[in-house]
């Protein structure tokens, strides 16, 4: 009795989380030009429109390039902060690390408002560089925490060996530490890139009406009357996100990374 109840509860939640996307998928392959489900006639024309019309291509390009650079900024900050904490163990290292945890503790609107005012004053309001840097700095928390696991897993023997063999700290970093924490860095990069592509509020408040990203495009479309292209864009997005995570799960142990496995 109890196991069945448990199973039902978990299944119900899974359905609640997945069902909306099944409907969106259905809408996106329906050839009718009004949103309706179930689809009456299958067609991929909305996807063609998504990938050929400049109205959609430009936001896609904006989003992807912002994400690519923002991921790089976030990971280099996180890597430096973790290295410093690992070398110094206390004081200054902890301060640097703790500062990186800040952005995730505040509601995004506060960060977005701060960024908006800051860039306005710097004369960068409405510039793509502003969005890139803000994304890179605000999403630093994820790679920071993930890389911390990588640094925690470094065994002292390897470092000791490298030092006794006469390697300088720089050589040790390049030849020993970096390769060992690289999988964590890649995971962190991928997560920042995905979150950046999906982020709405900061992009909107920093440079929203000049640099249109994909979420901004979708949001505006939904607000002011929409066609099924939005559904195909949403699906493309969801597939890209899930695809990236599936690829990640192939070469890193996601369960372990999230602390789920009992070591």
């Amino acid at each position: 009795m109890i196991p069945i109840f448990k199973r039902l509860f978990v299944t119900a939640i899974a359905v609640g989380l997945i069902l909306p996307f099944v409907i969106v998928a259905g809408v996106s392959i329906n050839s009718a030009s009004n949103i309706s489900f179930p689809p009456s006639e299958l067609s991929l024309k909305w996807y063609t429109q998504l990938l050929t019309e400049p109205d959609w291509l430009l936001p896609i390009r904006n989003s992807l390039s912002i994400a690519a650079v923002a991921g790089f900024i976030a990971v280099s900050i996180a890597l430096a902060a973790n290295y410093v904490l690992w070398r110094l163990k206390s004081g200054f290292g902890k301060l640097v690390f703790g500062l990186g945890l800040g952005p995730f503790m505040l509601p995004p609107i506060i960060i977005a408002m701060g960024a908006s005012v800051f860039w306005a004053e710097m004369g960068f309001y409405g510039r793509v560089e502003a969005t890139v840097i803000s994304h890179g700095v605000f999403f630093v928390t994820l790679p920071l925490v993930i890389l911390a696991r990588g640094f925690a897993a470094l065994s002292d023997d390897v470092i000791e060996a490298s030092r006794t063999m006469g390697a300088t700290p720089w050589q040790t970093f390049v030849k020993v530490i970096f390769p060992l924490v690289l999988p964590y860095a890649i995971t962190g990069y991928a997560l920042v890139a995905i979150i950046s592509v999906n982020e709405y509020l900061i992009s909107y408040m920093v440079s929203g009406f000049v640099v249109e990203t994909l979420p901004i495009r979708i949001f505006n479309n939904v607000r002011y009357g929409y066609t099924p292209v939005v559904a195909s864009a949403a699906m493309g997005f969801a597939l890209l996100t899930i695809g990236t995570l599936l690829v990640l799960s192939m070469f890193t142990d996601l369960l372990k990374l999230l602390g789920a496995s009992r070591d």
Partner: peptide, 28 residues
């Protein structure tokens, strides 16, 4: 874990849009 991570990363805009359709009178 993959389902939860996907949802965590997925845009508010897209989750909102998906529910909008699921709640609408001609498709949900």
């Amino acid at each position: 874990v993959i389902l939860l991570l996907s949802l965590m990363c997925l845009s508010e805009v897209i989750i909102g849009f998906a529910w909008l359709i699921l709640f609408s009178e001609n498709s949900g």
